[in-house]
Amino acid sequence: MKKQLSAKQAVDMIPDGAVIMCGGFLGCGTAHRLMDALAASQKKDLTIICNDAGLLEGPNGEAYYGVAKLIHNHQVSRLVTTHIGLNPEATEQMNAGTMRIDLLPQGSLAEMIRAGGAGLGGTLTKTGVGTLVEDAKDYVVGRQNIDGVDYLLMRPLSADFALICGQQVDEEGNVWYAGTARNFNQVMATAADIVIAEAEQLVSVGEIRPEDVQTYGILVDYIVNGGQDDE
């Protein structure tokens, strides 16, 4: 049985300055209860690794959807991401110099996290050759020529925390995602020291068939029941 926490208890574990991977793609699959709790916590100086900067408005009219909540609160000092075009506040903070934004290609970001979680020294890809990505020395070791083809050697990425969210999470932390919500959640669960899984629905062990487990309970440290009241 994995320890179950309220969203607030989970967020209390996160110190200022933490590096956090947040799953989701424009809010689909993001751990929204954990985002709410993190926003309420006023934790600051966070480095967020996330596909995007979220949306100013969610599909049901919610203000600040996904990691946009944290950006709006000025809690993020560095955002490692692929796209910020749908959150103008991210651009404003980048231009004002109050938030550093490191842009990486989406497939490279996924593979760099995979490398971080799989114990690999990096990942070689043709993506980004001949572009500004080559200048991002924090993330790119350099060009490598393998059998006549140029690749970029991208560094692995890991984090202190991964905040993921599944449609069903069982009491051992096994996760099943609905629809396209799997996106970055699955790989991020492999690449962080502490993995917190928000459950849209908490189920008993065995309710998710072993064939359907997409994030394995062995990777998950804590469960937050997104359906239960906080506190």
């Binding site: 796209h83 651009t91 934004i101 290609p105 497939g107 890809t125 043709k126 980004g128 990505v133």
Partner: peptide, 15 residues
């Protein structure tokens, strides 16, 4: 002027 980011475009073009 505008930096929306590359999203998946670089991967698509290279792959």
């Amino acid at each position: 002027k505008k930096t929306p980011g590359m999203g998946g475009a670089m991967d698509l073009l290279a792959g």
